[in-house]
Amino acid sequence: MPNNQFKKGELYSFITGKASTAIARRLQKNFKQANIDITIEQWSVLYHLWKEDGMSQQQLCDATFRDKPSITRLVDNLEKLKLVKRVASKDDRRINLIYLTKEAEVLQEQTIDVATQTLNEALEGVTHGQIEIAKEVLQKVYDNLK
Score class of each variant (00 low, 15 high):
residue 136 E to G: 08
residue 91 D to Q: 10
residue 31 F to I: 03
residue 7 K to S: 12
residue 122 A to N: 06
residue 48 H to T: 01
residue 81 L to I: 06
residue 131 I to Y: 07
residue 5 Q to P: 08
residue 62 D to S: 01
residue 125 G to P: 10
residue 36 I to D: 02
residue 2 P to S: 11
residue 128 H to V: 14
residue 96 N to V: 00
residue 123 L to S: 13
residue 25 R to V: 06
residue 131 I to V: 15
residue 121 E to L: 14
residue 40 I to W: 09
residue 129 G to Y: 12
residue 87 V to H: 04
residue 128 H to I: 15
residue 123 L to P: 06
residue 29 K to F: 11
residue 15 I to S: 06
residue 97 L to Y: 02
residue 62 D to P: 00
residue 125 G to D: 05
residue 130 Q to T: 14
residue 87 V to P: 00
residue 70 S to Y: 00
residue 53 D to C: 03
residue 51 K to R: 11
residue 72 T to P: 00
residue 29 K to D: 13
residue 9 G to A: 09
residue 93 R to L: 10
residue 7 K to E: 10
residue 108 Q to H: 10
residue 140 K to S: 10
residue 114 V to H: 05
residue 4 N to S: 09
residue 69 P to V: 09
residue 39 T to K: 12
residue 23 I to T: 15
residue 135 K to L: 15
residue 80 K to G: 03
residue 121 E to Q: 15
residue 38 I to G: 01
residue 87 V to R: 09
residue 102 K to A: 15
residue 85 K to R: 12
residue 118 T to C: 14
residue 27 L to N: 04
residue 6 F to C: 07
residue 72 T to C: 01
residue 79 E to T: 03
residue 48 H to M: 01
residue 56 S to I: 02
residue 69 P to I: 09
residue 85 K to E: 06
residue 22 A to V: 07
residue 16 T to V: 13
residue 110 Q to H: 12
residue 79 E to N: 04
residue 87 V to F: 02
residue 14 F to Y: 15
residue 51 K to E: 13
residue 98 I to C: 06
residue 129 G to A: 14
residue 141 V to A: 06
residue 111 T to L: 11
residue 52 E to V: 06
residue 120 N to A: 15
residue 98 I to R: 06
residue 56 S to E: 05
residue 103 E to Y: 12
residue 25 R to W: 03
residue 109 E to P: 02
residue 120 N to Y: 12
residue 53 D to S: 05
residue 126 V to T: 15
residue 35 N to Y: 03
residue 97 L to M: 07
residue 77 N to W: 03
residue 11 L to F: 14
residue 130 Q to V: 09
residue 68 K to T: 04
residue 50 W to F: 11
residue 42 Q to W: 01
residue 117 Q to S: 14
residue 142 Y to P: 00
residue 141 V to S: 02
residue 2 P to Q: 13
residue 146 K to N: 09
residue 105 E to V: 10
residue 67 D to W: 01
residue 39 T to C: 04
residue 22 A to T: 12
residue 108 Q to P: 03
residue 90 K to D: 12
residue 108 Q to K: 15
residue 23 I to N: 08
residue 88 A to D: 03
residue 139 Q to L: 08
residue 81 L to T: 02
residue 3 N to I: 07
residue 40 I to D: 04
residue 11 L to W: 09
residue 35 N to S: 11
residue 122 A to Y: 08
residue 81 L to Q: 10
residue 139 Q to N: 13
residue 97 L to N: 06
residue 53 D to R: 01
residue 4 N to T: 12
residue 79 E to P: 01
residue 142 Y to L: 09
residue 87 V to K: 10
residue 142 Y to C: 05
residue 2 P to R: 10
residue 48 H to N: 04
residue 91 D to V: 04
residue 103 E to F: 11
residue 26 R to F: 04
